[in-house]
Nucleic acid binder design. Sequence first.
DNA 1: CACAATCTCTGACTTTAGTCAGAGATTGCC
DNA 2: GGCAATCTCTGACTAAAGTCAGAGATTGTG
Lengths: 258, 258
Amino acid sequence: MIKAVRSFNRAVTQRVGALNEHYLGRSRPLGEARVLWEIGERGCDVRLLRARLDLDSGYLSRLLRSLEGAGLTALTPSDDDRRVRNVRLTKRGGAELAMLDQRSDALAKSMLSTLAPAQQERLVTAMAEVDRLLTASAVEISQVDPDQSDARLCLSAYYAELDRRFPAGFDAATGDSLEPGEMRPPAGLLLVATLGKTAVGCGVLRFHSEGWAEIKRLWVDGSVRGLGLGRRLLGELETPGCATREPHGSPGHEQVAS
Amino acid sequence: MIKAVRSFNRAVTQRVGALNEHYLGRSRPLGEARVLWEIGERGCDVRLLRARLDLDSGYLSRLLRSLEGAGLTALTPSDDDRRVRNVRLTKRGGAELAMLDQRSDALAKSMLSTLAPAQQERLVTAMAEVDRLLTASAVEISQVDPDQSDARLCLSAYYAELDRRFPAGFDAATGDSLEPGEMRPPAGLLLVATLGKTAVGCGVLRFHSEGWAEIKRLWVDGSVRGLGLGRRLLGELETPGCATREPHGSPGHEQVAS
DNA sequence: CACAATCTCTGACTTTAGTCAGAGATTGCC
DNA sequence: GGCAATCTCTGACTAAAGTCAGAGATTGTG
Protein backbone atom coordinates (compact mmCIF):
# COMPACT_ATOMS: atom_id res chain seq x y z
CA MET A 1 0.00 0.00 0.00
CA ILE A 2 2.69 2.44 1.05
CA LYS A 3 4.61 1.46 -2.03
CA ALA A 4 1.70 2.28 -4.32
CA VAL A 5 1.23 5.67 -2.69
CA ARG A 6 4.90 6.45 -3.10
CA SER A 7 4.88 5.43 -6.70
CA PHE A 8 1.87 7.64 -7.24
CA ASN A 9 3.56 10.57 -5.53
CA ARG A 10 6.62 10.22 -7.67
CA ALA A 11 4.74 9.85 -10.92
CA VAL A 12 2.47 12.75 -10.16
CA THR A 13 5.07 15.23 -9.00
CA GLN A 14 7.18 14.43 -12.02
CA ARG A 15 4.50 14.50 -14.64
CA VAL A 16 1.85 16.86 -13.39
CA GLY A 17 4.27 19.07 -11.51
CA ALA A 18 6.69 19.44 -14.36
CA LEU A 19 3.96 19.94 -16.94
CA ASN A 20 2.32 22.54 -14.76
CA GLU A 21 5.46 24.57 -14.53
CA HIS A 22 6.08 24.20 -18.20
CA TYR A 23 2.60 25.23 -19.29
CA LEU A 24 1.70 27.81 -16.72
CA GLY A 25 5.00 29.37 -15.81
CA ARG A 26 5.83 30.24 -19.36
CA SER A 27 4.81 33.83 -19.70
CA ARG A 28 5.49 34.84 -16.12
CA PRO A 29 6.81 33.35 -12.88
CA LEU A 30 4.62 30.73 -11.31
CA GLY A 31 4.15 32.85 -8.20
CA GLU A 32 2.63 35.69 -10.19
CA ALA A 33 0.48 33.29 -12.17
CA ARG A 34 -0.87 31.83 -8.96
CA VAL A 35 -1.73 35.29 -7.67
CA LEU A 36 -3.50 36.21 -10.91
CA TRP A 37 -5.40 33.00 -10.66
CA GLU A 38 -6.48 33.60 -7.11
CA ILE A 39 -7.57 37.17 -7.77
CA GLY A 40 -9.99 35.88 -10.37
CA GLU A 41 -12.37 37.80 -12.60
CA ARG A 42 -14.17 39.42 -9.75
CA GLY A 43 -11.25 40.86 -7.82
CA CYS A 44 -10.43 40.21 -4.23
CA ASP A 45 -9.20 41.82 -1.02
CA VAL A 46 -5.46 41.66 -0.56
CA ARG A 47 -6.00 40.39 2.95
CA LEU A 48 -8.01 37.44 1.69
CA LEU A 49 -5.46 36.80 -1.01
CA ARG A 50 -2.70 36.63 1.55
CA ALA A 51 -4.66 34.19 3.67
CA ARG A 52 -5.54 31.93 0.79
CA LEU A 53 -2.09 31.75 -0.72
CA ASP A 54 -0.39 31.85 2.66
CA LEU A 55 2.18 34.40 1.55
CA ASP A 56 4.30 36.87 3.44
CA SER A 57 2.73 40.32 3.30
CA GLY A 58 5.89 41.92 1.97
CA TYR A 59 6.29 39.29 -0.69
CA LEU A 60 2.70 39.54 -1.83
CA SER A 61 2.97 43.31 -1.91
CA ARG A 62 5.88 43.05 -4.28
CA LEU A 63 4.17 40.48 -6.47
CA LEU A 64 1.19 42.78 -6.77
CA ARG A 65 3.42 45.69 -7.63
CA SER A 66 5.04 43.66 -10.32
CA LEU A 67 1.67 42.72 -11.78
CA GLU A 68 0.57 46.32 -11.56
CA GLY A 69 3.72 47.37 -13.35
CA ALA A 70 2.83 44.99 -16.15
CA GLY A 71 -0.60 46.59 -16.35
CA LEU A 72 -2.45 43.47 -15.30
CA THR A 73 -4.00 44.51 -12.02
CA ALA A 74 -5.23 47.63 -10.28
CA LEU A 75 -5.16 48.30 -6.56
CA THR A 76 -7.82 50.42 -4.90
CA PRO A 77 -8.48 51.00 -1.23
CA SER A 78 -11.46 49.06 0.01
CA ASP A 79 -14.60 51.08 0.68
CA ASP A 80 -15.54 49.86 4.12
CA ASP A 81 -12.03 49.57 5.58
CA ARG A 82 -9.45 51.80 4.03
CA ARG A 83 -6.55 49.84 5.47
CA VAL A 84 -7.25 46.93 3.17
CA ARG A 85 -6.77 47.12 -0.58
CA ASN A 86 -8.88 45.60 -3.23
CA VAL A 87 -7.19 44.10 -6.28
CA ARG A 88 -8.94 43.59 -9.52
CA LEU A 89 -7.80 42.61 -12.97
CA THR A 90 -7.51 45.17 -15.69
CA LYS A 91 -8.60 44.29 -19.18
CA ARG A 92 -5.13 43.02 -19.94
CA GLY A 93 -5.10 41.10 -16.71
CA GLY A 94 -8.35 39.43 -17.64
CA ALA A 95 -6.88 38.44 -20.98
CA GLU A 96 -3.84 37.02 -19.22
CA LEU A 97 -6.04 35.02 -16.89
CA ALA A 98 -8.03 33.71 -19.83
CA MET A 99 -4.79 32.59 -21.39
CA LEU A 100 -3.76 30.79 -18.21
CA ASP A 101 -7.14 29.15 -18.27
CA GLN A 102 -6.62 28.01 -21.82
CA ARG A 103 -3.21 26.64 -21.01
CA SER A 104 -4.63 24.78 -18.08
CA ASP A 105 -7.20 23.23 -20.40
CA ALA A 106 -4.52 22.43 -22.93
CA LEU A 107 -2.47 20.73 -20.25
CA ALA A 108 -5.44 18.64 -19.23
CA LYS A 109 -6.08 17.72 -22.83
CA SER A 110 -2.49 16.78 -23.42
CA MET A 111 -2.69 14.35 -20.54
CA LEU A 112 -5.59 12.57 -22.21
CA SER A 113 -4.83 12.96 -25.88
CA THR A 114 -2.56 9.97 -26.40
CA LEU A 115 -4.89 7.57 -24.60
CA ALA A 116 -7.60 5.48 -26.16
CA PRO A 117 -11.13 6.65 -25.30
CA ALA A 118 -11.72 3.82 -22.83
CA GLN A 119 -8.46 4.60 -21.10
CA GLN A 120 -9.36 8.27 -20.94
CA GLU A 121 -12.55 7.43 -19.15
CA ARG A 122 -10.82 5.22 -16.66
CA LEU A 123 -8.17 7.84 -16.00
CA VAL A 124 -10.73 10.55 -15.35
CA THR A 125 -12.73 8.32 -13.04
CA ALA A 126 -9.65 7.39 -11.07
CA MET A 127 -8.54 11.00 -10.90
CA ALA A 128 -11.87 12.07 -9.49
CA GLU A 129 -11.62 9.35 -6.86
CA VAL A 130 -8.10 10.37 -5.87
CA ASP A 131 -9.17 14.00 -5.81
CA ARG A 132 -12.05 13.26 -3.43
CA LEU A 133 -10.16 11.00 -1.09
CA LEU A 134 -7.12 13.24 -0.97
CA THR A 135 -9.41 16.07 0.01
CA ALA A 136 -10.95 13.89 2.69
CA SER A 137 -7.56 12.97 4.06
CA ALA A 138 -6.48 16.59 4.21
CA VAL A 139 -9.24 17.54 6.62
CA GLU A 140 -7.91 18.11 10.10
CA ILE A 141 -9.94 17.94 13.27
CA SER A 142 -8.99 19.81 16.38
CA GLN A 143 -10.55 20.98 19.59
CA VAL A 144 -11.01 24.74 19.75
CA ASP A 145 -12.56 27.32 21.98
CA PRO A 146 -16.17 28.18 21.06
CA ASP A 147 -15.25 31.86 20.90
CA GLN A 148 -12.68 31.31 18.18
CA SER A 149 -13.68 32.65 14.78
CA ASP A 150 -13.78 29.30 12.97
CA ALA A 151 -15.94 27.89 15.73
CA ARG A 152 -18.41 30.73 15.48
CA LEU A 153 -18.55 30.42 11.72
CA CYS A 154 -19.39 26.73 12.03
CA LEU A 155 -22.07 27.25 14.63
CA SER A 156 -23.82 29.96 12.68
CA ALA A 157 -23.59 27.83 9.53
CA TYR A 158 -25.26 25.08 11.54
CA TYR A 159 -28.12 27.34 12.57
CA ALA A 160 -28.48 28.72 9.07
CA GLU A 161 -28.75 25.21 7.73
CA LEU A 162 -31.41 24.25 10.23
CA ASP A 163 -33.30 27.37 9.26
CA ARG A 164 -33.19 26.33 5.62
CA ARG A 165 -34.14 22.76 6.36
CA PHE A 166 -37.14 23.18 8.66
CA PRO A 167 -40.27 24.05 6.71
CA ALA A 168 -41.13 26.63 9.35
CA GLY A 169 -37.56 27.86 9.65
CA PHE A 170 -35.51 27.71 12.78
CA ASP A 171 -34.82 30.35 15.37
CA ALA A 172 -31.67 29.81 17.38
CA ALA A 173 -33.26 31.66 20.28
CA THR A 174 -36.11 29.13 20.65
CA GLY A 175 -33.94 26.03 20.30
CA ASP A 176 -31.96 24.51 23.10
CA SER A 177 -29.28 27.11 23.48
CA LEU A 178 -25.72 26.17 24.29
CA GLU A 179 -23.68 28.85 26.00
CA PRO A 180 -20.00 29.00 24.99
CA GLY A 181 -19.18 27.90 28.52
CA GLU A 182 -21.03 24.66 27.94
CA MET A 183 -18.88 23.88 24.91
CA ARG A 184 -15.56 24.12 26.65
CA PRO A 185 -14.04 21.90 29.30
CA PRO A 186 -15.00 20.82 31.81
CA ALA A 187 -18.65 21.24 30.77
CA GLY A 188 -18.17 20.03 27.21
CA LEU A 189 -15.96 20.34 24.17
CA LEU A 190 -16.09 21.57 20.60
CA LEU A 191 -14.31 20.04 17.64
CA VAL A 192 -13.80 21.91 14.39
CA ALA A 193 -12.76 20.29 11.11
CA THR A 194 -10.64 22.43 8.81
CA LEU A 195 -9.53 21.99 5.23
CA GLY A 196 -6.52 24.14 4.70
CA LYS A 197 -7.51 27.33 6.44
CA THR A 198 -11.26 27.11 6.13
CA ALA A 199 -13.59 25.46 8.62
CA VAL A 200 -15.74 22.76 7.06
CA GLY A 201 -17.41 21.02 9.98
CA CYS A 202 -17.94 20.85 13.70
CA GLY A 203 -19.36 18.83 16.55
CA VAL A 204 -20.01 19.43 20.25
CA LEU A 205 -19.86 17.07 23.18
CA ARG A 206 -21.85 18.15 26.23
CA PHE A 207 -20.92 16.31 29.43
CA HIS A 208 -23.54 15.49 32.00
CA SER A 209 -22.97 14.91 35.67
CA GLU A 210 -24.15 11.30 35.61
CA GLY A 211 -21.14 10.20 33.61
CA TRP A 212 -22.69 10.36 30.17
CA ALA A 213 -22.52 12.93 27.43
CA GLU A 214 -24.58 14.02 24.48
CA ILE A 215 -23.53 14.95 21.00
CA LYS A 216 -24.81 18.25 19.58
CA ARG A 217 -24.18 20.72 16.78
CA LEU A 218 -22.86 18.15 14.36
CA TRP A 219 -22.45 19.90 11.03
CA VAL A 220 -20.55 19.28 7.80
CA ASP A 221 -20.23 21.84 5.03
CA GLY A 222 -21.92 20.99 1.77
CA SER A 223 -18.69 21.17 -0.19
CA VAL A 224 -17.19 18.21 1.67
CA ARG A 225 -20.17 15.94 2.17
CA GLY A 226 -19.87 12.34 1.17
CA LEU A 227 -16.25 12.13 2.28
CA GLY A 228 -16.96 10.39 5.58
CA LEU A 229 -16.28 13.52 7.56
CA GLY A 230 -19.46 13.26 9.66
CA ARG A 231 -18.53 9.76 10.69
CA ARG A 232 -15.04 10.88 11.48
CA LEU A 233 -16.26 13.73 13.65
CA LEU A 234 -18.56 11.35 15.49
CA GLY A 235 -15.70 8.97 16.03
CA GLU A 236 -13.53 11.75 17.39
CA LEU A 237 -16.24 12.87 19.76
CA GLU A 238 -16.76 9.34 21.03
CA THR A 239 -13.12 8.41 21.41
CA PRO A 240 -10.88 11.45 21.10
CA GLY A 241 -7.82 10.89 18.96
CA CYS A 242 -9.10 7.76 17.28
CA ALA A 243 -9.00 9.24 13.80
CA THR A 244 -5.54 10.67 14.13
CA ARG A 245 -4.04 7.29 14.99
CA GLU A 246 -3.25 4.44 12.70
CA PRO A 247 -6.19 2.06 12.45
CA HIS A 248 -4.23 -1.01 13.57
CA GLY A 249 -2.13 0.51 16.28
CA SER A 250 0.96 0.72 14.12
CA PRO A 251 2.99 3.88 14.63
CA GLY A 252 1.65 6.63 12.45
CA HIS A 253 1.93 10.37 12.67
CA GLU A 254 3.89 10.47 15.86
CA GLN A 255 7.03 9.05 14.34
CA VAL A 256 6.99 11.82 11.83
CA ALA A 257 5.87 14.81 13.77
CA SER A 258 9.29 15.32 15.33
CA MET B 1 -13.65 15.55 -18.39
CA ILE B 2 -11.22 18.42 -18.79
CA LYS B 3 -12.67 19.93 -15.66
CA ALA B 4 -12.05 16.77 -13.65
CA VAL B 5 -8.46 16.58 -14.85
CA ARG B 6 -7.88 20.20 -13.92
CA SER B 7 -9.37 19.70 -10.51
CA PHE B 8 -7.12 16.70 -10.04
CA ASN B 9 -4.08 18.66 -11.14
CA ARG B 10 -4.80 21.43 -8.73
CA ALA B 11 -5.52 19.15 -5.80
CA VAL B 12 -2.49 17.04 -6.43
CA THR B 13 0.04 19.79 -6.95
CA GLN B 14 -1.17 21.52 -3.84
CA ARG B 15 -1.33 18.55 -1.51
CA VAL B 16 1.29 16.16 -2.77
CA GLY B 17 3.62 18.93 -3.89
CA ALA B 18 3.44 20.84 -0.67
CA LEU B 19 3.76 17.72 1.46
CA ASN B 20 6.70 16.55 -0.57
CA GLU B 21 8.59 19.76 -0.03
CA HIS B 22 7.75 19.76 3.61
CA TYR B 23 8.79 16.19 4.27
CA LEU B 24 11.69 15.75 1.94
CA GLY B 25 13.23 19.19 1.71
CA ARG B 26 13.67 19.46 5.42
CA SER B 27 17.25 18.52 6.00
CA ARG B 28 18.63 19.75 2.68
CA PRO B 29 17.47 21.52 -0.46
CA LEU B 30 15.11 19.53 -2.62
CA GLY B 31 17.57 19.57 -5.50
CA GLU B 32 20.23 17.82 -3.46
CA ALA B 33 17.71 15.35 -2.10
CA ARG B 34 16.64 14.48 -5.62
CA VAL B 35 20.24 13.90 -6.63
CA LEU B 36 20.89 11.68 -3.62
CA TRP B 37 17.78 9.76 -4.51
CA GLU B 38 18.80 9.26 -8.09
CA ILE B 39 22.32 8.16 -7.22
CA GLY B 40 20.85 5.34 -5.17
CA GLU B 41 22.62 2.68 -3.12
CA ARG B 42 24.57 1.37 -6.04
CA GLY B 43 26.10 4.57 -7.33
CA CYS B 44 25.81 5.96 -10.81
CA ASP B 45 27.72 7.69 -13.59
CA VAL B 46 27.48 11.46 -13.50
CA ARG B 47 26.61 11.44 -17.18
CA LEU B 48 23.62 9.20 -16.55
CA LEU B 49 22.59 11.29 -13.58
CA ARG B 50 22.60 14.39 -15.71
CA ALA B 51 20.48 12.73 -18.35
CA ARG B 52 17.97 11.38 -15.88
CA LEU B 53 17.49 14.56 -13.91
CA ASP B 54 17.90 16.74 -16.97
CA LEU B 55 20.19 19.18 -15.20
CA ASP B 56 22.77 21.64 -16.46
CA SER B 57 26.22 20.12 -16.18
CA GLY B 58 27.54 23.08 -14.21
CA TYR B 59 24.64 23.01 -11.83
CA LEU B 60 24.92 19.28 -11.23
CA SER B 61 28.63 19.61 -10.70
CA ARG B 62 28.01 22.12 -7.95
CA LEU B 63 25.30 20.02 -6.37
CA LEU B 64 27.67 17.08 -6.26
CA ARG B 65 30.40 19.21 -4.77
CA SER B 66 28.03 20.36 -2.07
CA LEU B 67 27.07 16.77 -1.28
CA GLU B 68 30.70 15.77 -1.27
CA GLY B 69 31.44 18.63 1.09
CA ALA B 70 28.81 17.27 3.44
CA GLY B 71 30.50 13.88 3.29
CA LEU B 72 27.58 12.15 1.63
CA THR B 73 29.02 11.17 -1.71
CA ALA B 74 32.35 10.27 -3.26
CA LEU B 75 33.40 10.96 -6.84
CA THR B 76 35.78 8.63 -8.63
CA PRO B 77 36.78 8.58 -12.28
CA SER B 78 35.10 5.79 -14.18
CA ASP B 79 37.31 2.82 -15.08
CA ASP B 80 36.48 2.43 -18.73
CA ASP B 81 36.22 6.10 -19.67
CA ARG B 82 38.14 8.47 -17.50
CA ARG B 83 36.25 11.50 -18.70
CA VAL B 84 33.15 10.40 -16.86
CA ARG B 85 32.94 10.28 -13.09
CA ASN B 86 31.22 7.73 -10.98
CA VAL B 87 29.35 8.90 -7.88
CA ARG B 88 28.56 6.64 -5.00
CA LEU B 89 27.17 7.22 -1.56
CA THR B 90 29.42 7.14 1.45
CA LYS B 91 28.21 5.49 4.63
CA ARG B 92 26.74 8.78 5.75
CA GLY B 93 25.19 9.28 2.34
CA GLY B 94 23.55 5.89 2.62
CA ALA B 95 22.15 6.84 5.99
CA GLU B 96 20.82 10.08 4.57
CA LEU B 97 19.17 8.21 1.73
CA ALA B 98 17.62 5.77 4.17
CA MET B 99 16.22 8.73 6.07
CA LEU B 100 14.74 10.18 2.90
CA ASP B 101 13.23 6.79 2.29
CA GLN B 102 11.68 6.76 5.73
CA ARG B 103 10.28 10.23 5.25
CA SER B 104 8.81 9.21 1.97
CA ASP B 105 7.12 6.31 3.72
CA ALA B 106 5.92 8.58 6.49
CA LEU B 107 4.48 10.96 3.92
CA ALA B 108 2.62 8.12 2.26
CA LYS B 109 1.29 6.97 5.61
CA SER B 110 0.16 10.45 6.52
CA MET B 111 -1.90 10.58 3.37
CA LEU B 112 -3.75 7.46 4.41
CA SER B 113 -3.87 7.74 8.15
CA THR B 114 -7.01 9.81 8.57
CA LEU B 115 -9.05 7.69 6.21
CA ALA B 116 -11.21 4.73 7.12
CA PRO B 117 -9.78 1.38 5.98
CA ALA B 118 -12.27 1.03 3.13
CA GLN B 119 -11.42 4.53 1.92
CA GLN B 120 -7.73 3.76 2.12
CA GLU B 121 -8.18 0.80 -0.14
CA ARG B 122 -10.15 2.78 -2.67
CA LEU B 123 -7.59 5.57 -2.64
CA VAL B 124 -4.70 3.20 -3.25
CA THR B 125 -6.55 1.45 -6.06
CA ALA B 126 -7.36 4.74 -7.73
CA MET B 127 -3.80 5.96 -7.28
CA ALA B 128 -2.43 2.86 -8.95
CA GLU B 129 -4.78 3.39 -11.87
CA VAL B 130 -3.80 7.04 -12.26
CA ASP B 131 -0.16 6.08 -11.99
CA ARG B 132 -0.46 3.52 -14.78
CA LEU B 133 -2.49 5.64 -17.13
CA LEU B 134 -0.40 8.73 -16.58
CA THR B 135 2.63 6.67 -17.46
CA ALA B 136 0.88 5.44 -20.57
CA SER B 137 -0.01 8.95 -21.62
CA ALA B 138 3.54 10.16 -21.14
CA VAL B 139 4.92 7.79 -23.73
CA GLU B 140 5.85 9.61 -26.90
CA ILE B 141 6.19 8.04 -30.31
CA SER B 142 8.39 9.46 -32.99
CA GLN B 143 10.06 8.41 -36.19
CA VAL B 144 13.81 8.09 -35.89
CA ASP B 145 16.73 6.96 -37.95
CA PRO B 146 17.66 3.30 -37.41
CA ASP B 147 21.23 4.31 -36.64
CA GLN B 148 20.21 6.47 -33.72
CA SER B 149 21.16 5.06 -30.31
CA ASP B 150 17.60 4.60 -28.99
CA ALA B 151 16.68 2.79 -32.17
CA ARG B 152 19.61 0.41 -31.90
CA LEU B 153 18.82 -0.26 -28.25
CA CYS B 154 15.25 -1.17 -29.14
CA LEU B 155 16.24 -3.44 -31.99
CA SER B 156 18.77 -5.36 -29.96
CA ALA B 157 16.25 -5.64 -27.11
CA TYR B 158 13.86 -7.10 -29.66
CA TYR B 159 16.40 -9.72 -30.75
CA ALA B 160 17.33 -10.50 -27.16
CA GLU B 161 13.71 -11.08 -26.36
CA LEU B 162 13.22 -13.40 -29.29
CA ASP B 163 16.28 -15.30 -28.17
CA ARG B 164 14.78 -15.72 -24.70
CA ARG B 165 11.38 -16.69 -26.04
CA PHE B 166 12.28 -19.32 -28.62
CA PRO B 167 13.07 -22.66 -27.00
CA ALA B 168 16.01 -23.05 -29.36
CA GLY B 169 17.08 -19.44 -29.03
CA PHE B 170 17.23 -16.99 -31.87
CA ASP B 171 20.10 -15.83 -33.95
CA ALA B 172 19.67 -12.45 -35.59
CA ALA B 173 21.94 -13.59 -38.40
CA THR B 174 19.64 -16.44 -39.45
CA GLY B 175 16.40 -14.45 -39.26
CA ASP B 176 15.13 -12.17 -41.95
CA SER B 177 17.62 -9.40 -41.63
CA LEU B 178 16.59 -5.78 -42.09
CA GLU B 179 19.33 -3.42 -43.11
CA PRO B 180 19.18 0.08 -41.67
CA GLY B 181 18.50 1.34 -45.15
CA GLU B 182 15.31 -0.70 -45.27
CA MET B 183 14.03 0.98 -42.12
CA ARG B 184 14.32 4.51 -43.36
CA PRO B 185 12.39 6.34 -46.06
CA PRO B 186 11.69 5.67 -48.79
CA ALA B 187 12.16 1.93 -48.20
CA GLY B 188 10.47 1.89 -44.79
CA LEU B 189 10.28 3.66 -41.48
CA LEU B 190 11.06 3.07 -37.83
CA LEU B 191 9.06 4.37 -34.88
CA VAL B 192 10.47 4.50 -31.38
CA ALA B 193 8.41 5.02 -28.23
CA THR B 194 10.12 6.88 -25.42
CA LEU B 195 9.17 7.47 -21.81
CA GLY B 196 11.04 10.49 -20.62
CA LYS B 197 14.47 9.84 -22.06
CA THR B 198 14.42 6.07 -22.27
CA ALA B 199 13.25 4.04 -25.20
CA VAL B 200 10.48 1.60 -24.31
CA GLY B 201 9.23 0.28 -27.62
CA CYS B 202 9.54 0.28 -31.38
CA GLY B 203 7.99 -0.82 -34.63
CA VAL B 204 9.09 -0.93 -38.27
CA LEU B 205 7.12 -0.47 -41.45
CA ARG B 206 8.67 -1.97 -44.59
CA PHE B 207 7.24 -0.65 -47.84
CA HIS B 208 6.89 -2.91 -50.83
CA SER B 209 6.78 -1.83 -54.39
CA GLU B 210 3.29 -3.16 -55.04
CA GLY B 211 1.77 -0.49 -52.80
CA TRP B 212 1.53 -2.52 -49.65
CA ALA B 213 3.71 -2.66 -46.55
CA GLU B 214 4.53 -5.06 -43.79
CA ILE B 215 4.95 -4.49 -40.08
CA LYS B 216 8.08 -5.81 -38.41
CA ARG B 217 10.16 -5.48 -35.27
CA LEU B 218 7.24 -4.60 -33.02
CA TRP B 219 8.51 -4.60 -29.47
CA VAL B 220 7.40 -3.17 -26.12
CA ASP B 221 9.57 -3.15 -23.04
CA GLY B 222 8.39 -5.32 -20.15
CA SER B 223 8.16 -2.36 -17.80
CA VAL B 224 5.38 -0.72 -19.81
CA ARG B 225 3.35 -3.68 -20.98
CA GLY B 226 -0.36 -3.63 -20.44
CA LEU B 227 -0.63 0.08 -21.10
CA GLY B 228 -1.89 -0.25 -24.65
CA LEU B 229 1.42 0.81 -26.10
CA GLY B 230 1.60 -2.06 -28.59
CA ARG B 231 -1.79 -1.13 -29.96
CA ARG B 232 -0.76 2.47 -30.15
CA LEU B 233 2.40 1.67 -32.07
CA LEU B 234 0.41 -0.44 -34.50
CA GLY B 235 -2.03 2.39 -34.96
CA GLU B 236 0.78 4.83 -35.66
CA LEU B 237 2.33 2.51 -38.19
CA GLU B 238 -0.98 2.04 -39.98
CA THR B 239 -2.07 5.67 -39.98
CA PRO B 240 0.79 7.95 -39.00
CA GLY B 241 -0.17 10.69 -36.57
CA CYS B 242 -3.42 9.09 -35.48
CA ALA B 243 -2.41 8.78 -31.86
CA THR B 244 -1.07 12.28 -31.57
CA ARG B 245 -4.33 13.83 -32.67
CA GLU B 246 -7.46 14.34 -30.66
CA PRO B 247 -9.86 11.42 -31.10
CA HIS B 248 -12.78 13.57 -32.23
CA GLY B 249 -11.02 16.05 -34.37
CA SER B 250 -11.15 18.79 -31.77
CA PRO B 251 -8.03 20.92 -31.60
CA GLY B 252 -5.49 19.32 -29.31
CA HIS B 253 -1.77 19.66 -29.06
CA GLU B 254 -1.35 21.99 -31.97
CA GLN B 255 -2.98 24.94 -30.28
CA VAL B 256 -0.47 24.64 -27.51
CA ALA B 257 2.70 23.72 -29.22
CA SER B 258 3.36 27.25 -30.36
C1' DC C 1 49.37 12.25 -34.87
C1' DA C 2 46.08 15.88 -35.48
C1' DC C 3 41.42 17.00 -34.68
C1' DA C 4 36.86 16.84 -33.36
C1' DA C 5 33.88 15.25 -29.88
C1' DT C 6 32.74 14.23 -25.05
C1' DC C 7 32.61 14.89 -20.17
C1' DT C 8 33.32 17.52 -16.17
C1' DC C 9 34.41 21.60 -13.77
C1' DT C 10 34.81 26.79 -12.73
C1' DG C 11 33.47 31.50 -12.67
C1' DA C 12 30.21 34.92 -13.33
C1' DC C 13 25.55 35.85 -13.72
C1' DT C 14 20.24 35.87 -13.18
C1' DT C 15 15.67 34.92 -11.58
C1' DT C 16 12.53 33.18 -8.32
C1' DA C 17 10.92 32.81 -3.95
C1' DG C 18 11.11 33.94 0.10
C1' DT C 19 12.07 36.14 5.29
C1' DC C 20 12.33 39.79 8.72
C1' DA C 21 12.05 44.21 10.84
C1' DG C 22 9.97 48.07 11.00
C1' DA C 23 7.23 52.51 9.09
C1' DG C 24 2.86 54.66 7.99
C1' DA C 25 -2.05 54.79 7.56
C1' DT C 26 -6.33 53.45 9.46
C1' DT C 27 -9.64 51.45 12.62
C1' DG C 28 -11.93 49.60 16.92
C1' DC C 29 -12.33 49.97 21.77
C1' DC C 30 -12.08 51.86 26.39
C1' DG D 1 -8.92 61.26 22.69
C1' DG D 2 -5.51 57.76 23.51
C1' DC D 3 -3.85 53.31 22.56
C1' DA D 4 -3.53 48.88 20.77
C1' DA D 5 -4.47 46.24 16.81
C1' DT D 6 -4.72 45.66 11.81
C1' DC D 7 -3.31 46.10 7.06
C1' DT D 8 -0.13 47.33 3.66
C1' DC D 9 4.22 48.77 2.09
C1' DT D 10 9.47 49.43 1.94
C1' DG D 11 14.16 48.21 2.53
C1' DA D 12 17.53 44.95 3.27
C1' DC D 13 18.63 40.39 3.25
C1' DT D 14 19.06 35.18 2.00
C1' DA D 15 18.81 30.67 -0.23
C1' DA D 16 17.64 27.89 -4.01
C1' DA D 17 17.73 26.91 -8.63
C1' DG D 18 19.42 27.62 -12.70
C1' DT D 19 21.98 29.56 -17.17
C1' DC D 20 25.94 30.45 -20.06
C1' DA D 21 30.53 30.61 -21.70
C1' DG D 22 34.45 28.68 -21.73
C1' DA D 23 38.76 25.76 -19.81
C1' DG D 24 40.95 21.28 -19.16
C1' DA D 25 41.22 16.49 -19.39
C1' DT D 26 40.33 12.45 -22.15
C1' DT D 27 38.87 9.63 -25.98
C1' DG D 28 37.56 7.98 -30.71
C1' DT D 29 38.57 8.63 -35.69
C1' DG D 30 40.48 9.60 -40.10
